[in-house]
Simulated scan of single mutants.
Amino acid sequence: MRVGMLVDERSTTVVVIGGGQSGLSAGYHLKRRGVPFVILDAAQAPGGAWRERWESLRMATVNGIFDLPGFPKPPLDPDEPSRTAVPRYFAGFEQASGLPILRPVRVTAVHSGPGERLTVETDRGNWVTDAVINATGTWDNPVRPHYPGQETFTGPQVHTRDYVSADQFAGKRVAIVGGGISALQQLEEISRVATTFWYTRREPVFLDGDFTPEGAGRDTIAKVTADVEAGRPTGSVVSYTGLIWTPYAQAARDRGALERRPMFTAIEPYGVREADGSFTSVNAILWATGFKASLAHLDPLHLRNEQGGIQLTGTAVTADPRIHLIGFGPSQSTVGANRAGREAVTTLIRRGVLSPTPVP
């Protein structure tokens, strides 16, 4: 539902921050358990970060979209851009479920409020609540590395977040930085229309087979879970899983685009200084350097430890179990996001933070 300007302060039992897959899953389970709640979503319309994906990312290329709870996705055209197909599916779920979603509402800070309650500050008024389920994902927190001389570069520098299509690099000499899935997808596309140079901090590791929740996938989830339960900062998905020989990775290899170079040491006006001291002329840089969890609005709660991580017990922040992080750590995948939404609600009820009134 879309609303106008909120009043200065309102109250509810749970505030869900974020209207992507994990936030919608949490909302579904809160409604089923009869818990008063609201979902605050910064986007203008349904779809979460999928609305911002680059135009050429088709449904055949994405890693898979898991069904939202109680709402099987319809057949999807593999050639349709994910930026239209997924938001349409999310919009159908929102209409069918009738969740109380307010948008666009941007959360700016969360504080400990009066008594045991929390205050959620937004650009459209404040909310006082007993618990927060945070589902803000990573899209709004791109990693933008800095190298000496970067500000002197005369060409465009684009992060994955702002990438539109290979057309914007046609005919150029492009340094593509990053060793993740998005980097490979964009490298493959851009190498069709431009001269590309691929840079990564570490030698990429390619594995045979597909990533699934079983087998190696289960081992990966266990490793990420161990990190968050120990309060260690988590790395990128690929740092746990390695890379798969997907069709686009094979196409890039066959085109000779997967000739990886170690990271350059500096950026100059018309190119980059290589690790061996030589110079490579480039006139554009794509920073496919990934994202980190978008959690700055939780900083007033001082949840991070001396390592810079946030320790979790399940989905609950160990230091403050009123706060749950979903779509974070081991629940970043679409199937993990669904499970985390259910777990957060179940845990809050079991610990007595919430008093449910089951809906018949």
Rank of each mutant, 00 (worst) to 15 (best):
W287P: 00
G27S: 09
T241K: 01
Y28G: 08
S355R: 15
P69S: 03
G125Q: 02
T220A: 13
V86K: 08
Q44L: 13
G19V: 06
E52C: 08
S331R: 02
R117M: 10
P204V: 07
Q95K: 13
R304H: 03
Q250D: 11
A293L: 03
I285F: 07
V237S: 12
V14N: 03
G125Y: 05
R58P: 05
S97M: 15
D8H: 11
A344C: 02
V143E: 00
F206D: 00
N126F: 05
A284L: 00
V86T: 07
G271P: 11
A60Y: 03
D227R: 01
Y89W: 06
Q186F: 07
Q332P: 00
F264H: 00
T160E: 08
E259I: 10
P360H: 09
N141W: 07
G98C: 04
M5H: 11
Q311H: 12
T315E: 04
Y240R: 06
D162Y: 15
D41Q: 01
L68K: 12
D130V: 15
Y89A: 01
S281M: 09
L286T: 01
Y89C: 00
L354D: 07
R202Q: 12
L30I: 05
S294Y: 08
A43M: 11
Y89P: 10
S112N: 15
P87M: 01
A340S: 06
P74R: 15
G171P: 07
G27D: 02
L76E: 03
Q332M: 11
R10E: 15
A166W: 11
E268W: 09
A175Q: 08
D208Y: 15
A183M: 01
R342E: 10
I101L: 04
F90T: 02
S278A: 04
D299W: 06
R260D: 14
V205N: 14
D320C: 14
P204Q: 01
R342F: 06
D227P: 02
Y28N: 05
Y163E: 12
E188N: 09
R124A: 09
L301Y: 04
A170D: 06
H29Y: 12
L286R: 00
E9A: 14
F93C: 03
A257E: 02
R202V: 11
R342G: 04
H297A: 08
A249Y: 09
R53D: 13
F71N: 07
G137V: 12
P46Q: 11
Q168G: 15
W245E: 14
F169V: 00
N126G: 04
R218H: 14
V335E: 14
S112Y: 02
S239N: 05
D130A: 15
G309W: 05
G256I: 04
N338I: 08
G4I: 01
F93L: 06
W54N: 06
I133A: 05
D320P: 13
P46Y: 11
R232T: 14
A183V: 01
V143L: 11
Y199T: 04
W139Y: 13
D320F: 12
E116L: 15
V86F: 10
W127C: 00
M5T: 14
T346G: 14
L102C: 10
L303P: 00
G352A: 10
T246A: 01
V38Y: 05
